[in-house]
Amino acid sequence: MNKEFTTITERLDTVLEQLAYLTERQRKQEELIAELTPIAKLALGTATEKLDQLDQQGYFAFGKELVEVAKKVIEGFSPQDVHELGDAVVQILQAVRAMTQPAVLAVAADASSVMDDAAAVKPLGMFGMVRATRDDDVQKGMAIMIEVLRRIGHGANAVAEKSKQLEDKKAKLQLALGSRKQKKPLGIERKRLTAGTPAAPRPAPAAQASCAVPAGPQPSAAVIDGIAYTADGHLVDATAWTRRLGETLAQMQGVTLTDAHWAVLEAARADYETTAVSPNIRRLTQIANVTTKDLYALFPKAPGRTIAKIAGLPKPAGCL
């Protein structure tokens, strides 16, 4: 019995020890957290500040732009392009190596140093250019540039030749195999709609003496008392005119005919009979022994046209 009691007491001691240990650890953890909190706060603050600083320095904007660029590159190039690029990459690297040789770079650097003192360089005219070619270095540079140009031209020719050969090959292949279009259609053969129906030939343009000559007989727009008139109010057929009709037409134009009027009208008709051209004002002044002023006095509104209308002639042509 006593022995059992001793065992229990020992166990209780062990439990108590463990409890004490746990309590101590809990206390230490709490202390740690209490100590850490301000430090963590400080650290978080610093991190935020740092990120903000980075943003201000444009790192994120730069990153965003970079993504945009990548997107553009992907959109702009097809996989085929990339594949071809892979083939050419060796050449590109060779070219880059050739261009970045120290000697070449030195030349480039020296040449670009001109930009630094560009202010000191004087503008050059045509004669200045000729004079500059006397300089040995300029001559050498020119020779090199010419050589570069020659090689570029040579290369371009080679590229053109190559693509032409390709075309020739295609043409030969086509010739050998025959175009699909040239083969006879299978099944029921029928005439092609487009073949054998030539477009209707255009009417030959009427020979025109000068601007605005009415070509051929004008279509009649109205028929009054058996006389046909054009849309402009001129007689369709000049031979249908009579003196009586002329008087009626003059009334319609608001002109009271006098002997002077009749002289002009008869001259106009006579001229039309010989030339088959309705006389314009300038012609009338030459044939009817009247001045421009007289014509405007006799037929105040648009004399040329009015005279032609009353005299039963077509609309006069020309600008004078």
Binding site: I281, A302, R305, L320
Partner: peptide, 11 residues
């Protein structure tokens, strides 16, 4: 000149 004359001729 021509335009002015043509205008007069057209009333």
């Amino acid at each position: 000149l021509i335009l002015a004359n043509a205008a007069r001729q057209s009333g």
